[in-house]
Every structure is written in structure tokens, then in C-alpha cells.
Design a binder for these strands. Structure first.
Lengths: 211, 211
DNA sequence: TTCCAATTGGAGTGGTCGCTACGTTAAGCT
DNA sequence: AGCTTAACGTAGCGACCACTCCAATTGGAA
């Protein structure tokens, strides 16, 4: 988007400052949402003046979009830690779900801020919301791929429906975790969710028709 | 909370104005969240001056909490439309889920604004968030009751886990509906969800039972 | 050393924020 | 009629908002 260009070397403080700004912004935005994130607040938290923020980012909208983008990458890196590939399909699915649950607990910023933006309905949609829906589709596609691979008998319509259901369930469980804190065992819930979806997929694939 | 008291009659415009303010506030808050809801905006939309809003509500926090409270009641009334009580348990559960899906599509304000507030993590929590978590527990208890009634063999721990899962799934599907608009069949998704939860409950409850 | 461009510092813009003070209107009670 | 009080209207407070201007730094290229 506005990453490092080829010809000219960056000054050391440039990339470092950008990172500090994003660190501060992701924290405030995750706490207070889009409108609640003020440039002055970000400036105070990262120790750089407002003008530096506006040197690195076009405007507030651009900053929030960059926050979404980077926090997605951070989360994605946390999900993709190597999981064991062995075992029965059901156990593999449960292990993958557990991995997702752990990564969401470790890096909740992306989904929390993204869901906040996704629920908003502004007349003119912020760039951050578009960015969230975009990168979210990447994650969705992975779920669909896993489903298609594990239960190849599923027709595309069933894959789509089950993928939507699986992703929605993950969102809901995540929200539940944010609300209830550690009073709910997210890993166990994700494993249950994965199992129910997997079993439903096997059943749907066996009979051949979804509904 | 601050409803009509007995002794003194209200002036006609009083209750009507309060309703107009809440109507305007629920619309703006559902679009833009807590911080995005400005008193000036509400004032412009309902046609009453800001001072009138502050006559009816203590402050912005109080207004948002009242918005949550009223939109919950509105939604609850929409859910409780009489559903058919006959049929096999599975069909009854699916019908109830469909009813919830329809009511959420018709009155999304409560859950949309509530989830936005629930996802926020302010240092000092807004009253509206507390109010949401409170009334949400009422809805959660109903799910638990239905589950306990339909599958009485379930032990309390299983009821609790499945209730959490059922509510979280509903949240996630609702969010999905808000994101995707009418590109997703919410009623079908809720029916699927209800079926999977119900079947899981039967399996967990019945040690020697066939489903 | 000189120069240029990347970055920072700080002051300041007009506008909006939540909220309040206070005067005006009108309905109900006696 | 006179009093009380719910409710509305106007004006404005200080604080904060997103954003801008421009001078001061600084490191690397020449």
C-alpha cells in the first residue's frame, strides 16, 4: 500500500516511528473504536507529534486502515504456527480450531477492531472497514479450503454454507471471549465448534444434498 | 428505571419527546457507535434542542443506556410473537431459531449497538455496556431454560457450555448478516445452528439414548 | 563541506464536542 | 387569577477534534 519503495533507503527513524504510531493506534482503537481513536491520543501514547503521524499517514482513515492491515498480518502469523498434521481428520480439525482460538486470545486486536468497524453503518464507509472485510475473506477462503479438502464429497453450495457457519461461529465465540474474559474456555469452545461443523459436513457429504 | 410515576400526570409532549429522542439516538448509535453519537446529531434528527435531551437524560452515557434498554424491549417483543408449540422437538427448536433470526433482522438495533459496546474496552465502562450485558443475560437464561426443558438429561455444566455456544453462534450469525446484508440466508443459518446444538445436546445428554 | 530530503517540533486553524445557564412558554392545580 | 412545574429555546462555555503550516533538525549523497 505504502510500503518501502526500491530506489531510496529509509532513514532508520522512519520505519521505527511508523511502527510506534501503529502500536499506539492499535491499542487505542481496540479500546475505543474508530471515533474514539483521536490523533492527539495516539500522539501522546507513541511520543511523536501529530505532524509526524500525518507525515506517515494521509489521514485518520488511512491510519486506521493501516492498523487493520498490520494487525491482520500479526494475527495470521500467529495462526500459522506449525500444527501437527497427523491423526484422524476429526482430531486434526479440533487441533486447528484450538490453534485459532489460542492465536485469537494472543492477538485479539485484529478481530476486535475489525468487528467493531464491521458493525458500524456509516453513510460513507471508512477504509478500515473495507480493509477488514477484504482480509477477512482471505481467512474465510482458508476455512473453505480445509473443508473442501477434508470432505471432498461436499458440493460447493454446502461448502459455502458451512464455511459461513464456521466463520460466524468463530466470530461469536471470540466475542463471547471478549465479554466473559477468561471465565469461558475459548479453546474448548472452538474445539466443540470445529467438531460440530465437521460432523455436519460429513453428514451432508454422505447423503449428497445440503437441504 | 425512570418510567411513569403514579401521582402526577405527564404532559403529553413529555413522553412523546422522549420517544423521539430515543428514536433518533438508536438510529445514529446503531450507525456510528458510542463516540460517533453526538448530542448535536441526535438533536438535529429529532428536532428538539440539546437542552431538551439533557432534561430527559442525565448525560450522554445515560442516553445510550436508555437506548440499549428500550431497543432490547422492542426486540424482545418481536421475538415473543406466538410460535407454534406443536411438532417434534427438533422442529420446534428450528422454528424457535427461525423466529429469533426474523426478529433480529427486523429489529437489529439492540444487538448491533450492544455488540459494538461489548467489544469496546474503555478504562471506565459506559453504563450502556453494563446495561447490554445485563439484559443479554436475560436472553441467555431463556436459551438455557429451553435447552434444559428439551433435554432434561443434561447436567448443568453441559447446559452452560451449550448455552454459551448457542448464544455465541447466534451473535456470530447476526454479525455475518450485518456484514453480508441479504446475501446470506439468516433464517436457514439459524435453523442449521439450532439443529446442530440440539443434536449435540441429545448426544451429550443421552448415555444410552438413540437420537 | 555543502546540499537535499526525510522527519520532527510546536504552534495554531476552524470546527465540533458534551454540557450548562437561564429565560420563555404553557398546562394543571387551587 | 395566581402559582407551580414540565418542557422548550437560545446562547455560549471550555475542551477537544482532525488537520495544517512552517521552521528546526538530521543523516546520507555529492
Amino acid at each position: 500500500m505504502d510500503g518501502a519503495q526500491g530506489g531510496r533507503r529509509q532513514r532508520a527513524n522512519g520505519v521505527e516511528s511508523r511502527r510506534r504510531i501503529l502500536d499506539a493506534a492499535v491499542e487505542i482503537a481496540g479500546e475505543r473504536g474508530y471515533e474514539g481513536t483521536s490523533i492527539a491520543g495516539v500522539s501522546a501514547k507513541c511520543g511523536l507529534p501529530a505532524s509526524s503521524i500525518y507525515w506517515h499517514f494521509k489521514d485518520k482513515d488511512d491510519l486506521i486502515a493501516a492498523v487493520i492491515e498490520r494487525s491482520f498480518e500479526t494475527w495470521l502469523a500467529a495462526v500459522e504456527l506449525p500444527g501437527e498434521e497427523a491423526g484422524a481428520p476429526l482430531e486434526r480439525v479440533r487441533a486447528m480450531a484450538a490453534q485459532v482460538a489460542k492465536s485469537l486470545a494472543a492477538e485479539p486486536d485484529f478481530l476486535r477492531l475489525g468487528l467493531m468497524l464491521a458493525l458500524e453503518r456509516r453513510p460513507q464507509e471508512p477504509k478500515g472497514r473495507t480493509m477488514f472485510l477484504q482480509v477477512r475473506d482471505i481467512a474465510r477462503q482458508r476455512v473453505a479450503d480445509v473443508l473442501q479438502t477434508l470432505v471432498p464429497e461436499l458440493d460447493p453450495g454446502a461448502v459455502d454454507q458451512l464455511t459461513t457457519y464456521a466463520v460466524a461461529g468463530a466470530d461469536g465465540l471470540f466475542v463471547q471471549g471478549q465479554i466473559a474474559g477468561d471465565r469461558v474456555d475459548l479453546v474448548a469452545m472452538f474445539e466443540l465448534h470445529a467438531q460440530l461443523v465437521f460432523e455436519a459436513a460429513v453428514r451432508m457429504g454422505g447423503t449428497g444434498e445440503s437441504r
